Every structure is written in C-alpha cells, then in structure tokens.
Amino acid sequence: MDEQGASLLGPADVRRLADELGIKPTKKLGQNFVHDPNTVRRIVSAAEVGADDVALEVGPGLGSLTLALLPAAGAVTAVEIDPVLAERLPRTAREFAPRLADRLTVLPADALKVRAEDFPEPPTALVANLPYNVAVPVVLHLLAELPSLRHGLVMVQSEVAERMAAEPGSRVYGVPSAKAAWYADVRRAGPVPRKVFWPVPNVDSGLVAFERVDPPSSAAREDVFRVVDAAFAQRRKALRGALSGWAGSAARAEELLRAAGVDPMARGEQLRIADFARIAEVASTGSPS
C-alpha cells in the first residue's frame, strides 16, 4: 500500500477477482488483464496525470490501472461496457484504496456512444488499456466529443500504435494517423512486454501519448475527414484519381488539388492533415483560408 492508501493488483489478486466473477479470459476474445503493478505505475507516470486532472479510463476491467490512477488524479471516471465488471469496480476500489474510493465514478456504458453530458466532471486526461479492434474509433470519438480532453496515454496493440503515431511518408500512415493529427500531437511512448498480461497475448503492445492541439483549419472537421477517407480508400492511386468520386470527376479533383497547392499526382500518404484541410476549404469556399 502506498502512502496515500492504495494497493495495486498483483497476479493472485487478478486471478481471484476473475474467479469470483466467473471470468475465464481467452486470447481469442482479446481478454487480457494487466497483473503487473510496475506496469500500471509506469503508465500513470508517463501519462503525467496530476491532482488537477479528471482521468478518463476506458475498459477498466478488474481495476489494475484504476487503482494506480486514484492516487494520482483528482478524480477518475471509468467507462465499462461489461455490467458485471462495472458493478464490481467500486467495491474493488473500496477494498484496495479505501481512502481514495470516493474519487471514482463508474459509467456502465459503451465508450463509442458516450457524450459529454454523461460525465459528472469534464475529463481532462485519457488513460486506458484499449482493445486493439476499437482503439482508434474510441480515441477519435472521445477527442471529438470531449473538448476538455487535453492529453492522454493509451495502451494498444503495437501495430495500432504505429498507425496512430505515423508521419506522412510512412508505409503505415493512413486514416487513423491523419484524423488523430486533426486533434492532437501523437507519439509513440514505448513498448509493453507481453508477460505483464494474463493470459499472455499473441501480439505486442505499445503506448501512445497525445497532447491536444488546435485544429489546423477553420474547415468543418466532417468535410476534411471525407477528403481523408476518399484519399486512402484507394491509397495506391494518385490523388487525382483517388478523389475523383468525392469531387465528381478526376478533372474536378485535379482543379481542386491545384487550387489547394497540392500535386494532383501525389498520394494521400504524402499529405499532412493541413493539406487535406486546404483541399476541403477549396471545395467548400473556392479558396484555401
């Protein structure tokens, strides 16, 4: 137990809680619980969560990361889609962090559907261990829905981490990279070994950190994202062809691209989010802002 009265879950605690709740995690379903206290301490430290933060955790599971967040943050809101896990988490907090349990609010909800008004306090920091198949949609949804979210650190599958933090020109740069850049500066923040999970997963994990930035354009986000989606739907094509459906014709796409100062023969993977924004601006106003 630390000086603020919080104990962390070890391997035996994780297995005991799983047994109590009748949870039999399987690799097939992507159910992997962190059972290493040093790992969750490292995550919270790297996330730079402070007493003035309202931390948002998605998918707290059995509570390993939750218990590490409670001493660091002023408040913690955990969004958990599984009703059994959501119901157990407050009791786990009372058992392992009795003096800090009142900092925790649990929302039994789907993170892809939560709205700003669902939160008792506007979250300022996202810290979570996210399933790889929903990691990108969850992060993008929360950044869009919660302007109060200023920074964060998420643990995801290593390949997802690469895509989220990729720069233009990278072979893995694509829709997730470009859209995430609309909201934030995103960077890799280190690997996570497989052995800290139970059961041990078949994939590597990594940390992704972000800091909110102002949008690079006054163009409507939806308009810009439509350009991004069109550009990468046929990523091997030059933009003149890739954007032909979006623009109405290849000739019109070339006209808009030239007006935006973008080479019509470039590919989407070469463009920064500001470039996509200029294309959207030209399409809606006739000139880039």
Rank of each mutant, 00 (worst) to 15 (best):
P264L: 01
V228I: 13
L243A: 05
A242W: 04
V227G: 03
V224Q: 06
V227N: 12
V228G: 04
G245V: 09
A247M: 06
S249N: 07
R236K: 15
S244F: 11
A230R: 09
A253M: 00
G248D: 00
A259S: 12
K237S: 05
A247V: 03
S244Y: 05
R226T: 07
S249R: 02
E255T: 14
A233N: 12
L256P: 04
L239I: 11
A259I: 02
L239T: 07
E254M: 00
A251C: 01
A231S: 11
K237I: 08
W246L: 10
F225M: 03
K237R: 12
G241Q: 13
S244P: 02
A247Q: 01
F225G: 03
L243G: 04
A250S: 14
V227S: 09
K237G: 04
A247H: 06
S249K: 02
G248N: 07
R240E: 06
A253I: 02
R252P: 05
G248S: 00
D229E: 15
W246S: 01
V228Y: 06
R236C: 09
A231C: 08
R258F: 00
L256W: 10
A233D: 10
A242D: 04
A253F: 04
R236Y: 12
V228K: 07
A233E: 13
D229W: 13
G248H: 03
G241N: 15
L239D: 10
D263Y: 10
A231M: 01
L239R: 09
L256F: 09
A253N: 06
G261F: 12
V227E: 11
L239P: 02
A250K: 06
A251I: 00
F232G: 01
L239Y: 02
G245H: 08
A233F: 03
A230L: 08
V228D: 04
V224P: 07
R226L: 09
R235V: 05
K237V: 07
A251E: 15
A242M: 03
F232S: 07
K237Q: 13
E255P: 09
W246F: 13
R235H: 06
A242I: 07
A233C: 08
D223E: 15
G245L: 09
A238E: 14
A233T: 03
A238M: 15
A250C: 02
A253Q: 00
A250M: 06
W246P: 06
E254Y: 05
A253L: 02
E255Y: 04
A233I: 05
G261Q: 04
A242N: 13
A251F: 03
A238F: 14
D229S: 14
V228S: 11
D223V: 05
R235P: 10
A231R: 08
W246C: 06
G245Q: 07
A260C: 13
K237L: 09
L256N: 10
G241S: 15
R236A: 01
A251Y: 03
